[in-house]
Design a protein around this nucleic acid. Sequence first.
DNA 1: TAGACGTAGA
DNA 2: TCTACGTCTA
Lengths: 164, 164
Amino acid sequence: RKWVNEDKRIGSVPGIEVGDKFECSTELNVIGLHRQFQNGIDFMMKDGEKLATSIVASGRYANHMISSEVLVYSGQGGNPRAGRIEPKDQKLERGNLALMNSMEAGTPVRVIRGFEDSEASKNMRYIYDGLYDVDKVTQERGEFGKLVFKFVLTRIPGQPKLSI
Amino acid sequence: RKWVNEDKRIGSVPGIEVGDKFECSTELNVIGLHRQFQNGIDFMMKDGEKLATSIVASGRYANHMISSEVLVYSGQGGNPRAGRIEPKDQKLERGNLALMNSMEAGTPVRVIRGFEDSEASKNMRYIYDGLYDVDKVTQERGEFGKLVFKFVLTRIPGQPKLSI
DNA sequence: TAGACGTAGA
DNA sequence: TCTACGTCTA
C-alpha cells in the first residue's frame, strides 16, 4: 500500500518530537520516521552513495544502550530467521554500508527504540529517541560464530531527555 | 497489536457484504473477516475440533476459480518461502485439518479474494466473495513433486453476484 | 516456539 | 527478485 510520496530525508522529521510514541511499525512508515517494513536500517541514496536515515532498535539482537547516550547496534544480514537459514557473515552492503557511510560523512541517524508494551502483552511499540552520530564500527564474531558488525552510536547533545 | 476482542465465528460477519473491498490484510484482521496475518486459512476450535472460518485466495499458489462458483484452493504447508525452505509434503494439520473438518461438518467458509490493484502497482487488495462449502478434498503432487491438498469449494447459492 | 497465500524497498 | 531487528495465532 502506498501511503505518502514524500522524499526521504536525513535528520529530524518535521512534527516529530523526541519521546513521541507509536503503536506499530506501520505508523513509523506512514509518518516517514522509518520507511522500511521489516528492516532495521533505513537509508537513502545521496550523490550516488547510501546514507543511513534511521534505525529501529527493537532489542531483538545484540544491541544495547551502554548508557542513555550510547547505543551499540548490530548490523543486518546473516541472522537465521525462525531457525531456518544458516547463519552467515554479515557483509558491508545495504544498511551496513549506509551506516558506515554515515559515519564517514558525519550525518545524523534517527534512532527509534522498540519496547514491549507492558507485562507480557508482547505488543511491540516504538518511541523516537532522537538523532545519533555513528562514531565507531567494529566487526566481531556473534553468537553463531559468524562476523557481525557493531555500530556504536552516540546521541547528539542538546536534545530533550528521553523518558519512557 | 490487539485490535478487537470479538469471538471468532463461522459464517457471515455482521455488516460485511459480498463485494466489500479492503485495502490491506490488516483491515481483514481488524474487521474480523480473516484473523490471520500471513496465513491463508483461518480456523477456530469448536467442541474440541478445528473448523475453518475463512480463507484468503491471493492467487499466489495454484488456486483458481474453475467458474464463478467453484474455487480450487491449495492447502498450507510445505511451500518454499523466498526459495529457502525445502519443499515438503503437506500434512493434514492446522488449516488443512480445519478445512477437512468443515467439509465433514458442512460448515460454510468465508472466501476473500486478493487481487492486484490495477496495473503493476503490486498492491494487494481484497474483496469479500461470500460463503462457500467445502465439497471435495484431493491430494496430489504439486510443482515441487510434493503432496499438496486441493480443496474444492463451491459458492453457496442465494448470495449476491460478485462484480469486481 | 514455530508456523504462515504479507509488505515495502533496493 | 530478494531481503528484512514484523506480527499474528495456535
